[in-house]
Design a protein around this nucleic acid. Structure first.
Lengths: 139, 139
DNA sequence: ATTGAAACGGCCCCACC
DNA sequence: GGTGGGGCCGTTTCAAT
């Protein structure tokens, strides 16, 4: 279903998702048309779910990034999911195993913003906050 | 430094980082040249750090995604950072506040692979594993 | 900092293998 | 499933503002 060439294409897109099909073709020895066709198929099969930009949030005025381990109150999962779009601060959110059954990555302006954000979360459950100090991949 | 137009460009790239400069220009009422120049400056200023592809790891044969909260042994931070590139399974890794001072997202093939991975981590510290059950943004 | 124009290169479709 | 070509569209550069 996904062969070695597809993997190479994906590797190339991992490095830089804006890489042109011509460039990818050169790297893996395939014509641009073929690369395009394979990428199209990977998108159709939802192996590729989208293309993201990696930002420096600090430089955009969002100086605080935190992880929140969240213990949902019983029966609150559905309403929490429904309300998710009211929290633009939530960048990623997953259900996980453990007593804290929700994990989220949250991007905030400052500590006041964090405080207000946590206050809004308290309706749904019990948050435990971890500040992100540094990205070890950036060092 | 980063003005309203830059924000609009970034919003557009957040939705799809492969969006062409022509298309972005149409959306925000700017010529392709100007969009390109602004993106170039955002890249140079490292506001934009890169362009990623969002993958369905399950469909690529990596059926297990986990978060690991990691309590580094005293004095092991430097060597752990130096050895990071020996763990291709580690997708993201951050220093965080709390007794578990490292957080990582790890992509694995199966439970056996997880077991082997954790065994290799034990040199550096004490891991606590949380399986990712679902991405709530996907629902 | 933005623009339009021109040259270049990539994308896309389709016919063919 | 891969290729090659023609037309179209996007990108890049640059002079002008």
């Amino acid at each position: 279903m996904v062969d070695a060439l597809d993997f190479k294409i994906i590797e190339s897109l991992k490095v830089n998702s804006r890489t042109s099909f011509v460039e990818i073709g050169k790297q893996i020895g395939l014509s641009p048309s073929s690369v395009r066709e394979r990428v199209q198929k990977l998108e159709d099969a939802e192996v590729i779910k989208g293309y993201n930009v990696k930002l420096n949030n600090k430089k955009l005025g969002f100086g605080l990034e935190v992880f929140i381990m969240f213990k949902l109150f019983s029966g609150k999962l559905q309403i929490f999911c429904d309300d998710l779009n009211r929290f633009p601060e939530i960048y990623e959110v997953y259900r996980i195993t453990g007593t804290h059954n929700i994990f989220m990555k949250v991007v905030l302006i400052d500590q006041l913003h964090l405080q207000q954000f946590i206050d809004r979360l308290l309706v749904y459950g019990e948050p435990t906050t971890h500040l992100i100090l540094s990205d070890l991949k950036d060092l």
